[in-house]
Design a protein around this nucleic acid. Structure first.
Lengths: 243, 243
DNA sequence: CGATCTTTTGACCCTTGTCAAAAGTTGTGG
DNA sequence: CCACAACTTTTGACAAGGGTCAAAAGATCG
């Protein structure tokens, strides 16, 4: 049974900005429904014009693009709070696909309502832009990682990235993240081969920095990984808007 | 001497959507001035909160990020029509720097006016979002190139990208583009070393697909390059908004 | 016409990719 | 609960694409 935005579990998280009562009311009208899907379900397809937008309520997924010959680039891991489908909503077509990796629950909006939002709710429209700009920011980081970092640096970077986001979303239980992805997914994210990813990951495990078995991921020394990846300690955890 | 938006040379290009008289009038109020800079001038700096936004009127530049140890990732080549500084305007800090590569002329907007735009001009706000989403789309393409393509594919991809954009902007004179960048810049864009970029580029020259000397670039066989890069022939040239 | 950049070349080798097969896991149906 | 099929993770051997170094050859520019 769908719940009212007022009771949305995501609202309570510290990473997200508070909603005013007014905004909550508006979002309740904007919300068109909920969608539940199982692992492997495609949610948005590259090149398609989806009539819907989504906010992830729970579950994990992948965004990816495929080249004609089958090579795949994972753009991002999809986590709760992520806003999906904006490209199709404003641009016309999705530049990538999105697929569920676990059971997922999504909040559904109508593409056609997006214009109303811009027209009547400038603050929410601003937030949408905020989200798009932030995503762009993140992709810039990814580009720098894939383009400039070595294999071990990339993996360290990727793990910190995942770990930090998961932490913000309160997804860590017993300091462990239930992580449904395969090493192949990580490899496709970082532009590495599966074999090399596996061997490099093994080094990080030996050094006691990470533990990843049985679909459970634990980062044991975030700071060591950050140093290894030459990450800007300053990557602030700013609060972000939630659609 | 600055000119009125009404006479903006970019407006006439086919790639950009038409402005209504109303929009032109608004933009004239939104425009805070013009900026002219020479080659090498930093326009926006990574991590800084710029009080200004820009639309490139003429000239070329680079967007890039630097890692702590000096490695540099070029995010994108900056061309006329590009909107700069949105990340700082909505998010807080720029995720990358922008620097002029030639003389550049920029249209300047005040960051503080952006909210007015959202409040009073939903259509223009929508366009801003459109731009952000499109940029995100493009970065996804880049990610796929750097992550999945081989050196020669990447270079082919990069050249097509530049060539197409330049064509859209009517920057080709005698089928030639005045291209102020160094091979090092292309290398840093594609995540390759300078030496390897040079040698790979040489192959494309030998095959008669490209000519690049003396700061003049000519792509002689776009389609061959597109095939080589496995590019989606469908990458539509949709009209885009201009700020 | 030096001083400074940028582009080319050649030699060498290291990081990462490819192939193939073994070892572990997970899930399913009888 | 076992057995088998289908995945995923590991390992090892080997190959190669691309990186690094160094220096020569061309441009640029004051």
């Amino acid at each position: 049974m769908p719940f009212a935005c007022h009771d949305c579990p995501l609202r309570r998280l510290d990473v997200f900005e508070e909603f005013s009562e007014d905004e909550v009311r508006f979002m309740e009208g904007f919300k068109a429904g909920e969608l539940e899907v199982g692992p492997g379900t495609p949610i948005l397809v590259e090149g398609a014009r989806s009539p819907q937008l989504f906010t992830v309520l729970s579950g994990l997924g992948l965004r990816y693009k495929t080249l004609e010959d089958g090579r795949r680039q994972v753009i991002n891991f999809v986590m709760p709070g992520d806003f999906l489908g904006l490209q199709a909503a404003v641009g016309g077509e999705m530049g990538h696909s999105v697929e569920a990796a676990t059971d997922m629950r999504l909040c559904v909006f109508r593409r056609s309502d997006i214009w109303t939002l811009f027209k009547n709710h400038p603050d929410r429209a601003y937030d949408v832009t905020w989200i798009a700009a932030t995503e762009e920011h993140f992709l810039g980081e990814s580009l720098a990682s894939i383009g400039q970092r070595s294999a071990i640096e990339r993996i360290a970077w990727g793990l910190v990235q995942i770990w930090t986001r998961a932490g913000d979303l309160d997804l860590l239980k017993n300091d462990t993240l239930l992580f449904p992805f395969r090493q192949q997914d990580l490899a496709d994210t970082l532009g590495l081969s599966l074999v090399h990813t596996n061997k490099t990951l093994a080094k990080l495990k030996e050094r006691g920095l990470v533990a990843w078995t049985d679909r459970r991921l634990r980062v044991l020394d975030v700071e060591a990984l950050e140093r290894m990846a030459l990450m800007d300690r300053s990557e602030i955890h700013r609060k972000r808007p939630l659609m």
